[in-house]
């Protein structure tokens, strides 16, 4: 555990809590992509199956359970409790265009051809693209509430900090996880355009982020 890894995890947790509280308090999931949240729930489910097979640490177990619970709680707020506020018209990204290539790639490029490893690989690849329905939705509607952009900022910062964590671990431990690193770089690239808009429009301006 190093400072980049820990702060990355904290940012990840903060992002998920921001989104959950935003929906809970406003009793609305307007502007939120239910598809992205479903994909994240699928990411956590397929990655954390090792909860049943391996014990790493109390920290590791607790965080995995918290992420799983919050992911499914968020999905249920969007699709059940506050379903009426869900903008399915704007959430029109075709997730099969992500799921099919990601599933195919995880069978082709993995560390070992076992169910748990393939599912872990699938979750890593899927996470790198899971935010695309949300970014697509913002592009389509042309705006995002500032609280939604704070969520995206922390979610993007989390994987960016993991990149620093992997550089650190490579130097300190000789640890290099090719699948996670390459996917993490791809994932971070997707946020670059958003980061730019976040700093130039949300933090310097006020209220909503509107696209040109």
């Amino acid at each position: 555990m190093n400072i980049f890894r820990l702060s990355g995890d904290v940012c990840h947790l903060v992002a998920i809590i921001i989104l959950f509280l935003k929906i809970w308090r406003s009793k609305s999931c307007a502007g939120i992509s239910g598809k992205s949240q479903l994909l994240f729930a699928l990411v956590f489910t397929t990655r954390y199956l090792d909860l049943f097979t391996a014990f790493i640490s109390i920290y590791n177990t607790v965080m995995k359970v918290v992420f799983l619970v919050l992911a499914y709680a968020t999905v249920s707020l969007i699709y059940f409790r506050f379903r009426k506020s869900y903008d399915s018209e704007s959430d029109s990204f075709r997730v099969e265009f992500l799921l099919v290539p990601v599933a195919g790639l995880s069978f082709l490029e993995n560390y070992s051809f076992t169910p748990l490893e393939i599912l872990w690989t699938f979750s890593i690849y899927l996470e790198s693209v899971a935010i695309l329905p949300q970014l697509f939705m913002i592009t389509k509607t042309g705006e995002a509430e500032s609280i939604t952009t704070h969520y995206l900022f922390f979610l993007g910062l989390y994987r960016t900090l993991y990149l620093a964590n992997w550089v650190w671990r490579y130097h300190e431990e000789g640890f290099f996880d090719q699948i996670a690193v390459v996917s993490g770089v791809v994932q971070t690239i997707f946020y670059c355009d958003f980061f730019y808009l976040y700093f130039t429009r949300v933090l310097r301006g006020s209220g909503k982020m509107t696209l040109p």
């Binding site: 890894r5 790493i56 490893e117």
Partner: peptide, 10 residues
Amino acid sequence: STAENHKDEL
């Protein structure tokens, strides 16, 4: 191996 080590990350 890498396949085992990566499990400590979230």
